[in-house]
């Protein structure tokens, strides 16, 4: 790989949201060169590292609609993913860049991509939002270490917004930056709604990699995931992302805010099913093949 290339991989396990998040961390830790990942998740609420599930998720609704709950390793707020949402993640080996600068850089790349898709009114709103006409279309989260920055985001392409509002708890304080329409608060918009036409996640992916090349001069090179990434992701899955100690952190402290039904629902939605564990066991077999 040349120094002005960026490795691009599509690595996704939509039916195992816990493994998708485990791979995300493995991908960040393994990438010492510019790298980008695109991926999708089936129905799940992904909460930020510093959030309590008790305050963010309507657990009974999530259980009713088959929506899982996973904690990610970066800060920021809770988001709803389904197959109409495209996730992107980027690692850049910029040792001197702080988190605010990383948000701005990636935010502007995403805005450029949305403009090429026809959304001229898209703009980056600090700290970590991309909006179209006052409505959020994508949110970013980030972290960094001594030698790299990592920014990832969720892009609403054609998600089920009604279900999104059912499963996320909405804070009245959060609405102060948002616009009111006919006594109802409209805060988010999908690309499909903004463009007024159906759109394939692949088209959005293509727009993002092209924008990356134009804005940062990084030439995309398609790549497969590495054995190292997969091994690390499997380890993180069993030790962290499939466990209540991680997904349900900051829950016991607020236990008396929950009914026993809500508490049980939280335990159920934050635990992988046997079928989801089986997906990871099959990956382990692939890793261990001679």
């Amino acid at each position: 790989m040349m120094s002005n290339d960026i490795r691009v991989l599509v690595a996704e396990w939509p039916s195992n949201q816990f493994f998708n998040l485990a791979f995300e961390e493995a991908f960040y830790r393994a990438s010492d060169k510019p790298t980008m990942r695109f991926w999708r998740n089936d129905k799940v609420v992904v909460i930020g590292r510093l959030q309590s599930p008790v305050l963010e998720v309507n657990a009974l609704e999530a259980l009713r609609y088959g929506v899982k709950l996973v904690r990610r390793f970066t800060g920021g707020g809770a988001v709803y993913h389904d197959l109409g949402n495209l996730n992107y993640a980027i690692v850049l080996p910029y040792a001197d860049m702080n988190i605010e600068e990383a948000f701005k850089l990636v935010g502007e790349v995403i805005v450029e991509a949305l403009k090429t898709l026809g959304l001229e009114k898209a703009y980056y709103r600090p700290l970590n939002d991309i909006e179209v006409d006052g409505l959020k279309i994508s949110g970013l989260a980030a972290t960094r270490s001594h030698d790299r920055v990592f920014v990832h985001g969720a892009m609403l392409v054609s998600s089920n917004i009604e279900l999104l509002w059912r499963v996320l708890k909405i804070s009245s304080e959060k609405l102060i930056d948002k616009k009111l329409t006919q006594s109802r608060v409209k805060r988010v918009i999908t690309i499909r709604e903004a463009l007024g036409r159906s759109i394939d996640p692949g088209e959005v992916q293509e727009a993002i990699t092209s924008a990356l090349q134009r804005k940062l001069g990084l030439k995309p090179l398609n790549s497969d995931l590495s054995k190292k990434e997969l091994e690390q992701a499997v380890k993180l899955y069993w030790e962290k992302y499939s466990r209540p100690e991680w997904n349900l952190a900051f829950t016991e402290e607020l236990r008396n805010l929950l009914t026993s039904e809500e508490y049980n629902a939280l335990r159920l939605i934050s635990k992988p099913s046997p079928q989801q564990d089986e997906i990871v066991r099959r990956l382990e077999e692939i890793i261990n093949e001679p």
């Binding site: 959030q51 800060g75 920021g76 970590n128």
Partner: peptide, 8 residues
């Protein structure tokens, strides 16, 4: 308990 959607 201090939580939220901030970064640190």
């Amino acid at each position: 308990l201090l939580t939220g959607d901030f970064f640190a």
